[in-house]
């Protein structure tokens, strides 16, 4: 008999404690961010899709060694370069990133020995067309220059 009432009272008491906690939470300040109206700054190391780092004159630092191409697990980078006449170095002519298959692992940035690529801070990427995610990074670099 004692146990019967003890169970009822301890049970009820635990329920009231729970109610007390949610009641406290009710008046606490809100912690959410209203995304389209507000947004937070991405951290310095945020891994967005990659982009080329402009050199002093805005030219890409890439030397077309192809390490990023090889390091990529999902083969989403394809670069092209050519040797202009009279020059020893290769010059980047195209840097294509197929963002649809990229898994943002960072292997390409890791593998680059020349510090030519970095992560962008872009995260608002949305489209209904697949082609919108085939980035030409060289073009982006030139656009950012202007």
């Amino acid at each position: 008999m004692f146990r019967y009432f003890n169970d009822i009272f301890s049970g009820l008491w635990s329920l009231f404690i729970g109610l007390g906690i949610t009641f406290q939470e009710f008046f606490k300040p809100k912690i959410t961010i209203h995304y389209p109206h507000q947004s937070i700054k991405m951290t310095a190391r945020y891994r967005g899709h990659i982009e080329l780092i402009p050199g002093e004159e805005g030219q890409p630092l890439c030397v077309v060694c192809g390490m990023c191409e090889k390091a990529c697990p999902s083969n989403c980078i394809s670069i092209g370069g050519e040797k202009p006449e009279g020059s020893k170095k290769k010059v980047l002519t195209s840097y294509r990133l197929d963002f649809t298959t990229c898994s943002l692992c960072g292997s390409c940035v890791d593998s680059c020995n020349f510090g030519a690529i970095r992560f962008s801070k872009e995260y608002n990427l949305a489209s209904t067309r697949k082609e919108d995610f085939h980035f030409d990074l060289l073009k982006r670099l030139e656009e950012s220059k202007q």
Binding site: T22, E25, F26, F27, K28, P29, K30, I31, T32, H34
Partner: peptide, 9 residues
């Protein structure tokens, strides 16, 4: 009410 209890608006 649910929102306020869960600390969202």
């Amino acid at each position: 009410g649910a929102g306020f209890i869960q600390r969202r608006p």
